[in-house]
Simulated scan of single mutants.
Amino acid sequence: MSEVRKMTYADLERWWEVDPNVLATTVVADATGHVHPTVSAALRSEEWLDHWADVLYATVGELDSSAERMTYTGDPRLPRVTRQCGQVHLRMQEANTLLRQRSRAEGRDLMPKTVTDARQAALSLLAKHHREEATKLRAEEIAHRGLAPDPPTHDWGEGPADAFDAIENAVRSGLLVAPIAAQTRRLIHMRERGFIVAVGHDVKQQRERNDGLRHPLLLRRWTAALTYLRDTTAAQAGGIATWTLVQPALDMDALRALPSQQAWLVINRRRFLRGCFQRWRECSRHVQDVVRTVAVRTEDERRPWSEATHASRITLAQRHPAQYRMLRDALEPYTEPGTPKIRHGALTQNQRSELFASLRERLAAS
């Protein structure tokens, strides 16, 4: 670790890519002391943020488990490990803050433009008011561009469980290209028991990765297997069967009253339970990332129709300039200066609904 503290990001970048242990050592060094500024910045960069967070969660789980073992055995290193655990927890909170900020930004980017862009919102309101005229203009523009009447569609379904359906349908339809390597093919054809064993082995090897499990067609089974392992392990480990890193404190007096072999089994199962959480968190992030990718590719696939719709609405606004100007003026107070972008947080959902209802009334009266 002392050597890592002296190295720059240029020195470490290649090592991080090929050796998870070097990345883990760097993450702990950053949490517990000084590292080169370029290293600290790189960990928090878009390229490495997810990897940094993954290692922090895995490290906290390992340190919590080490602290339990040391408490049970009376190991004199316990104060140092407890201090390190607290330091890594602080870094984990920092990483979570950055992840939340990114998630909000990405979520806003995927929102309909009618929610985030005053110009698009005004055009949408105008098109709904002049529905027949807008529909005719859109059909004419689509035909002029030589497009089919409607864009391609994919069945997304509803609810969180359907995220897996959306991912699997996207792969099968070719919208999402995901080559199946030999390792992945073996996992796809595994019976359930063998698959759960493979997932359990991946949980135990926190600094390695079974890349096959991360294939889009296996994310559903990976999630289910992790949930099964969590549920079957929690009761035996004195833990709770929910997705959390923090487990109830061990009753050391009760633990020491058990036969040694049984006590160690409880300690090791608690470590495994923390590993399940870390892998579940990673799996959930993979699901979110793939769903986001599918959404972006669906939007790209439909872009020619979206552009035709936008062009037809511009024509509509030119035909009804006074109404369009009224809508833009009404939305102006909520936009960022000099742009049509609606300020983040400028309108709650209820306020937006009330504003749009009043604008529809003004259109009807005009």
Rank of each mutant, 00 (worst) to 15 (best):
K6W: 07
T8L: 02
Y9L: 06
W16R: 04
E17D: 12
N21S: 14
V22T: 11
V22H: 08
T25W: 03
V27N: 01
V28A: 09
H36Q: 14
A41P: 09
E46F: 01
D54I: 08
L56C: 13
L63A: 02
D64P: 01
D64N: 09
S66R: 15
Y72I: 05
D75E: 14
P76Q: 13
T82F: 02
R83L: 07
E94I: 10
L99E: 14
S103K: 15
A105H: 09
A105D: 09
A105W: 03
E106F: 07
G107M: 03
L110T: 10
P112S: 05
P112D: 10
L126P: 03
A127S: 08
K128H: 14
R131Y: 13
E141F: 05
H144W: 13
R145Y: 11
P149F: 03
E158F: 11
A161F: 10
D162E: 14
G174F: 06
G174K: 01
A178C: 05
P179K: 10
I180D: 02
A182W: 10
Q183R: 12
T184I: 09
R185A: 10
L187F: 12
R191F: 09
G194L: 03
V203L: 02
K204C: 14
E208K: 15
P216Q: 03
P216Y: 05
L218M: 07
W222A: 08
A224I: 06
A224Q: 15
A225H: 07
T227A: 15
T232P: 02
I240C: 04
T242Q: 10
T244V: 10
T244E: 11
P248M: 05
P248W: 04
A249Q: 11
D251H: 11
P259Y: 09
Q262G: 02
A263L: 04
I267H: 02
F272T: 00
F277R: 01
R281D: 12
C283E: 14
S284E: 15
V287S: 04
D289F: 03
V290T: 15
V294F: 06
V294A: 05
V294N: 04
R297Y: 08
D300F: 11
D300W: 12
A308C: 05
T309Q: 04
A311R: 13
R325E: 11
M326R: 10
R328F: 00
D329Y: 00
L331C: 06
R343K: 15
L355V: 12
F356I: 12
F356A: 08
S358F: 07
E361K: 14
R362H: 15
A365D: 14
